[in-house]
Structure formats: C-alpha cells, structure tokens
Design a protein around this nucleic acid. Structure first.
Length: 872
RNA sequence: GGAUCCUUAGCUCAAUCGGCUAGAGCACCUCGUUUACACCGAGGGGGUUAUAGGUUCGAGUCCUAUAGGAUCCACCA
C-alpha cells in the first residue's frame, strides 16, 4: 500500500471540516487561558459584533467572521493571548416586529390579543431557533471563538450588567426622565429613535392663512391641525417685513380656540419660504420645541398618543389628525382666512416598521445626558470624552476618512432617548408608587410598587458589549478613598480594552459611538483601539444583501458547495476596507481552485517522498541549487510582506502575495524543477511555511494537511507565525532565476510560434551545461553543449548571453536612450538648485524636490548602466 | 442644503509615500491529457485609468472644473 492511493486528487472540504473544527475545540486553544504562553504575553481581543437573532446569517456576516478570525488566528500564531468572543443580540424592536408579523401571519393574532406573557414566550421560542442556527453558522465559518465566554445581550449576566449601568448612570445624573419631543408611532404606540424613521417623499398642500382677521402676520403650514397649539410665530431676524413685530405678543381667536402668540426671531426661518413667517407649535415639532426652549414659550399639546386631537379644543376635540386638518381648512375657507393653497413636495416621516406617519409628541421618556460634566471623567461630558478619544487618535479608524463621520455625528449629538414602549427587551429598573420613584437593581420592598412598563433601546445593551461580556460589573472594584477610580479585575483586566472592533461603516453612529460612551462611563477607558470598517457585501447585481429583500446568500450553501476556505478567501481577497464588494459564485469557485492547488502541492510532495516531513528550520547545507536559493528567498520575501500587510490591515494584499507565491513560484516553477533537482528538505520547509502563512486565510485545508503530515502530534492553529529571515533574501539568486525563467519562457514562445506541440521534445544547443536538466524539463528540450549555432534553438550561457532569444541590440538602444534622458534630468535638477530662481515657490521646497528627483534618477541611472554592462 | 466615496481590460476588483512595461481572477482565442492538480498546464489578445485643464523630472495616485453613479447626515413651516 502506497501513500499515493490514500490521498485523493481533490480536497473535499465537506469530508473534513467538521472533524477539524471538533479537533480545535477539543484542543482547548480557542480559550486563551489554555494557550501555553509566557505570563507577559499581550492580549489580543475581538468581540464579535453580535448578530441580530432576527434571522440566520448572510454573507455579510460571513465577511465579518472571515476578517476577524483572520486577525485572531494571525495574532494567536504570533503569540498573543488571542480571544475571539462570540455572542448574539436580542435586537429588541426588530425582533418584536418579526415575531409580531409571524404571529399575525400564522395565527392571525396581534400581540395585544395574545397578551404580554404569552407573546414574550413566542419571542423566546422564536429566538432560540435562530440563535442556534447563527451559532452553528459561525462554527461552519471556522471562527475560532471561545465558546466558554459566549454571551447574549439579553441573558442573565447581561441583564444584571444593564440594570447596574442604568442605576449607576441615574445616580451620576446621566440618566434622567424628562419630557421631550419624541417620534411617536400612533399605531405601534411606541417612540422611535431618529434612525428608526423612514422618509417618504410626498406631495402635500401648503396652506397660507391668518389665525384671525386681525392677526398681523400670515403664516404657511402643511399641518393646519397642529396650529391649535401655536404659541409663537417665528420670523427671520433679518426680515425687514416683520422686524418691528419681534418681541410683541398678540391674542388671536383661531376658529374659536384662543391663542396667545409671541413674535420671535430665529435664524433658521427662511425668508423666502411661504410667507417667511412660521407658526411655532412647540409640542409637535422638533424644531419648534427647540425654539420654544430658547424663547421660554409654553408647549400646548394638541395631539394625543392615539393620533387624535385632545379634549380642550372645542369642536375639533376627538378628531383624527386628518379629519381635523380637513375641517380646519374648510373653516378657514368659510371665514375667508385662507389666502393660498399650493401643492409642494416634502418628506413625511413614517415608522420603519408599519409605515404609519409618525407624530412628534412630547412624552415622558428616559434619556442619557451626553453633555453632563462628570466627575469621574475629569469634569468632562461623555460627548467631550468620546470626541477626544478619536481626535487624540486613541481610537483609530480604518480607513481613516471615517473619523470625520464619527466626529461630525458626535459633535451634533443630542441626549439619547433610551426608553421604548415595546415588550421585548431589557426592563427598566425603575419603580413607581404614586408620586414616588425608586431606581435600583432590585425591586423595592413593600407593596404597591409598579415597575416602569417600558424597555430599553437595544443599543443600550449592545453599547456595553465589550465589557458586559468580560465580567462587568463584578470585574470592577472601586477603591475606598477614591470612589471615581475604577480598578479592573479578572477578564476585564486581561482583555479590555479590545484591540479591534470590526464592523460596518453604517453603524458607526448607532453602535460605535454608543460603545465609546458606555465604556468611558463604566470602565473609564475606550472600548477598542482600532475600528476596522468593512464594506458591505453586495449581490452580483450590486444590491445590498438584506433580510427584507431576501437576496441574502446563506453562507452555508456556498460552504457546502465550495468549502469554508474558498468562501473565506473570496471574502478577504479583492476587498478593501470601507468599500463595498460584489460577490459571485464564480469568484468563490476560483478560490476553491486555489485550495485544490494547495492540496495537490501537498499531494505531490507526500506521494513522491514517502518519508516526507515538515521542516521548521532549514539547515543551510540543504540549500544546494540556484532554484533552492531562489525559492527560499522568495518565501522569505513573502513572509516579510505578508506580515507587514496583515499588521497594516491589508488583508487582500497579503492574500494576493500568498496566492502568487504558492501558485506561481512554488507550483509552477519550483515544483517542476524539483522533479529533476530533487530536494525534499526545501520542499518540506517551503510547505511548512506556506501552511502557516495560509492558515489564517484558509484554516481547514491547512490544518488537515498539517495533521496528516505530522500524524496529529501538533495543532497548526497554535504553531508560531514565521519570522522573516532577511538574511535568506537573495536578490542575486532571484535575478539568476529570472534569467532561467526567461530562457524557458522564450523557448516556449518559440515553440508556440513554430506550432510545435507542447509535449514534443526538441533539440537545443547551449554553450554550457548550467541548468541543463531544469531547462530540459521545463521547456521540454534536449540540450547538447556546442559552440556553433544554427539549429532550432540556441541556449547560450544563460547568465548573460541570450542573444538568439532576445534582441540584444534593440534592448541596448533602449537602455542608452534611457540613460541619456536620466542624465539630462539630473543635470537640470542640479542647475535648478544652483540657480536659485524659483518663481513664486520657496527655495527650500524647490531644492528638496530637486534633491529627491536627483536621488531617484541616480538610482535609476545606476541600474540602467548595470543592465547595459550585462548585455555587452 | 452639508459631507463622503466611486468611475481603471468584456465582467468583478487591485495598484502601499507620486516612481520599473497599470496587475489579478473570471470570461475570450490557440495548443495540450505530461503520474501533483482539467477544480490543470503552455502561449496569446484585450487599457487614451470617465472628460478637460493644472502641479511635477515623473500622475491611475495630488489640485481645479465637468459628467455619471452610490452612500451618509440634516432639513422639509
């Protein structure tokens, strides 16, 4: 029985992947505590951005895991205490919405009909299924997650953390209850965050009218019904028409409803829109609320939580907003108050879930104050500290340009409304008894207390993700003397702050910014050092893959077809940070081919040498031929280049270098030469390195090969990442080998142009026997040493004279031309410096530039001259 | 209204500080089963880097403008 029969011709991922994953899990090395490392080994932590449990993963998530696991495996091999922490997000509103829809479709019931308790049961039944699917998919992607630390944003530990966070923030005065304008969905009976709104372009009517006959100013509005609650009219301070009126207060009788209207000035009012005067309704417009605050105006509520006009508005009371609008317009017409009715286009804010028009309403909600100065933050606010972190580059964005988006958003940040009127989510640890309020992690003792019925915005808990997963709050202590000083213990001390947060650029504002503030408050430090932003994975039509569109590709289908390694490679190579990428099956297939190539490189080596071994360190005595020196040199260059690329987050470039080396250099050239110049030590050495370098990109096939060769004695996942040995980089050997390659290529060219079949052996004559066997094998020629020429192909001394293959005279002419050009350029630069006539530029700038030019061109000149010498 | 990105081969994308003949994969054309691999090998065609200017010894890369495409934020009385 020979090895040959044991190794199949193609690598079959489906056959091995689950076993390999099980082997990794069994090894225990996913848990950094089990890594055999020196005590001072640095930690390298990435927390998986927890996927929403609303649905299974799509390829976008696949890309997240491919990138993060690449970083984790790379650093684990480099000797870091690498922790990749998995988990899922309860995604409060989104999940409740999915389940609500499902419920309606399957059972025809609304959540109200089912009741809170039963409904939540439905939610949990639903999420247990999706959650299990997600975690299984994450395993299939090959993510080296520490499953012992797995977390869920709504599990018991996280609930405890959230309660503690809320209470701490409340005690510090950061969380407060206040009345603010919120986006209210009258159908869902819940507030919506700004980012939960959708905008619909619509045509609507703009009405110009006066409150009553005697009112001095006409105003324009699209929502006459809200004008029942007007307390001011705002005009532009520079508007000459109204200047005299500013500051005066008028009484008006608006269709039977008495109003007191003050004329105020506000820069945001455009003179040219409508009449240039705007009725201010503080209770039903965000902008008006702000004006009211600035001018000390009263806010009169007109519309209630059901979208109806409140009781104290005479005949309009109890009407739905649309009815009220029609009636008011009719009345205005009747009393000849309506001056103009025109059609305009504007945007209507609607609920992203149900499409109902959103009503801005004042409502009692819980808020996080972002501008409150905090003692524990050196008397700075959360906003200030979060801005500082990015400005001082304590948090670096990759690519850098996203820093601006973060800073812009953070600068304009308002207090964050964190309460939501939905059932599924973190309960708010606030209890009421009559007028009394109790805020605490545990319910107060005694009867009559009722907990706040609202739940928390989902980002409140996911904002705590970096530290709530690392044992907070039990992993912090405060010293007795300094209550604001935070001492980290346990996992938090070991793994926080994390090194990289890898996420999509679309949630910089929603998530990244919140994490920064939450971490600054709770732990007193930034949550991560780097924010790597991947682009979106688009389908082959360039459309965003999303659950709602149903065009998300299930990575498992692709894995079944092509293997995890191919899927990972296709997500890593050809994609750059911050830029979207299209993904097609063809692309994945081409990387499957690369995996097969690697497999066959191994297959050749293992079948050719029955005692084939891995070689970690190559004894120099085994480097014999020029080809050996060349492949070792190219390998070391690849090691150095890939390491630098990975350190710089240039995954695609590192992957391409790997592919170039493995396929072009190793498979196409060295392996072919090794068929005549047999050297199993160098083969073993090169393969060992290739396996290590490939592992973070394609963990399964590399581990499989490694296991087979080493008979399961070691695990590739925890092998040392190779350090580049620059001494083995041999430019001379590379040049020499390039000559050999050129000769072989030229012969192949001649063969093609003479229509000689590739496998027909032809005769060639050479001036010496250098590389006779290698060239014979690669170019399929028989070489005879002879001085004369005149046969099919002449192979002279390969180092210098390849006259009959390359047109030397033409080459020489080209180089001579180049040399003249370069010499002229250098002379001109020198003249420039000595003349010191610089037009409008500074002498320093010009001479620096000229010096750089001289340096570059002299280097070029030297190379060209050497080339010319070689040809002569 | 403010901001950001993109436009490179038929397609999908690279190209590091401005520096060698602008590179890959797929597709295409010619030849070939040769004991690692047809999921392969050898060879080949295909580019005015959106357009017009500018800076520079040198521009896909920097600046200005134009055209087309995408995204984010704000506002929408």
């Amino acid at each position: 029985m020979t090895m040959k029969q044991e190794i199949p011709r193609t690598y079959e991922p489906g056959k091995y992947e689950d076993d390999i994953y099980a082997l990794w899990e069994k090894s225990g090395f996913f848990n950094p505590d089990n890594l055999k490392l020196p005590k001072n080994a640095k930690a390298y932590t990435i927390v998986l951005p927890p996927p929403n449990i609303t649905d299974k993963l799509h390829l976008g998530h696949g890309s997240i895991i491919a990138i993060e696991d690449l970083l984790i495996r790379f650093h684990r091999m480099k000797g870091y205490r690498a922790l990749y922490l998995p988990g899922t997000d309860h995604a409060a509103i989104a999940t409740q919405n999915v389940v609500e829809k499902k419920l309606l479709k399957e059972k025809g019931l609304t959540r109200q009909e089912l009741g809170k308790e039963k409904f939540l049961e439905e939610v949990w039944n639903f999420l247990r299924v999706t959650q299990a699917t997600i975690l299984q998919q994450a395993r299939k992607m090959g993510g080296s997650f520490d499953w012992s630390r797995e977390a869920f944003t709504l599990d018991d530990q996280r609930k405890k953390a959230v309660r503690k966070m809320f209470v701490d923030m409340y005690d510090a005065g950061v969380i407060y209850r206040g009345e603010r304008i919120v986006n209210w969905c009258p159908r869902c009976k819940s507030t919506l965050a700004d980012d939960e709104l959708e905008y619909q372009g619509q045509k609507t009517k703009l009405y110009t009218f006066k409150y009553d006959k005697d009112f001095p100013v006409s105003i324009a509005t699209t929502r006459p019904e809200t004008k029942l609650g007007d307390t001011a009219v705002a005009v532009n301070p520079k508007d000459a028409r109204y200047k005299k009126l500013i500051g005066r207060t008028f009484s008006a009788d608006f269709l039977g409803v008495p109003l007191k209207i003050k004329i105020i000035a506000d820069r945001s009012v455009e003179k040219d829109f409508g009449t240039g005067a705007l009725g201010v309704t503080p209770a039903h417009s965000m902008a008006d609320w702000k004006m009211a605050e600035d001018n000390g105006l009263e806010a009169i509520k007109v519309i209630d939580e059901n979208g109806k006009i409140k009781n104290n508005f005479g005949k309009f009371s109890g009407l739905a907003v649309v009815e009220a609008r029609e009636m008011i317009v009719a009345e205005l017409k009747k009393h000849a108050l309506l001056e103009k009715e025109e059609e305009i286009e504007n945007n209507l804010s609607v609920c992203y879930r149900c499409g109902t028009a959103v009503e801005p309403l004042p409502s009692k909600q819980w808020f996080v104050a972002v501008d409150k100065k905090l003692k524990r933050l050196g008397n700075k606010s959360l906003k200030e500290k979060a801005l500082e972190a990015a400005k001082k580059k304590k948090i670096k964005f990759i690519p850098f340009r996203f820093t601006k988006r973060y800073l812009d958003w953070m600068t304009n940040l308002h207090d964050w409304c964190i309460s939501r009127q939905i059932w599924f989510g973190h309960e708010i640890p606030v209890y009421y008894k009559g007028e009394e309020i109790y805020v605490g992690e545990k319910p107060p003792k005694g009867p009559g207390w009722a907990q706040d019925p609202d739940t928390l915005d989902t980002w409140f808990s996911s904002g705590m993700w970096t530290f709530s997963t690392l044992g907070w709050p039990t992993s912090v202590k405060t010293s007795a003397g300094k209550p604001d000083k935070i001492i980290k213990t346990g996992d938090l001390a070991k793994f926080h702050p994390t090194q990289v947060l890898e996420t999509g650029y679309e949630i910089i504002t929603l998530w990244v910014s919140r994490m920064v503030m939450m971490s600054l408050f709770a732990v007193g430090e930034i949550p991560f050092e780097n924010v790597y932003l991947h682009g979106m994975v688009l389908d082959s039509f360039g459309k965003k893959m999303s659950k709602s569109k149903g065009n998300g590709i299930n990575p498992i289908d692709m894995i079944d077809k092509f293997g995890t390694d191919a899927v990972r490679l296709s997500l890593l190579i050809g994609s750059t940070p911050g830029n979207d990428m299209r993904l097609s099956e063809e692309k994945i297939a081409s990387f499957r081919n690369f995996v097969t190539k690697l497999w066959n490189i191994y297959r050749y080596m293992a079948t050719t040498y029955p005692d084939f071994k891995l070689v970690d360190k190559l004894d120099k005595k085994h480097i014999k031929t020029a080809a050996d020196r060349w492949i070792v040199s190219r390998l070391q260059e690849t090691v150095a280049g890939m390491t630098k690329d990975l350190d710089d987050y240039k995954f695609s470039m590192a992957g391409e270098k790997l592919q170039r080396f493995t396929w072009d250099d190793l498979a196409d050239w060295y392996l072919e030469i090794s068929k005549v110049e047999k050297n199993k030590y160098v083969l073993g050495y090169v393969l060992t390195y290739v396996l290590k370098l490939s592992h973070p990109f394609m963990p399964f096939v590399t581990e499989k090969i490694f296991q087979d060769i080493s008979f399961g004695k070691k695990v590739l996942m925890v092998e040392k990442w190779p350090a580049a040995d620059k001494k083995l980089i041999d430019k001379k050997a590379e040049k020499e080998f390039k000559n050999l390659q050129e000769i072989v290529t030229q012969i192949r060219n001649l063969r093609a142009s003479y229509n000689i079949e590739p496998n027909k052996v032809i005769t060639a004559y050479a001036k010496n026997e250098k590389h006779k066997e290698a060239v014979e094998k690669l170019a399929r020629v028989n070489i005879f040493v002879a001085k004369s020429t005149g046969k099919v192909v002449v192979l002279p001394d390969f180092e210098l004279d390849i006259a009959d293959v390359i047109d030397v005279e033409k080459e020489k002419e080209k180089i001579k031309k180049n040399i003249t050009l370069l010499e002229n350029t250098i002379r001109r630069s020198r003249e420039l410096i000595s003349n010191k006539q610089f037009m409008d530029k500074s002498p320093k700038e010009v001479s620096n530039r000229a010096l750089a030019s001289i340096a570059y061109n002299e280097k070029e000149l030297k190379e060209q001259k050497e080339l010319l010498r070689n040809l002569n």
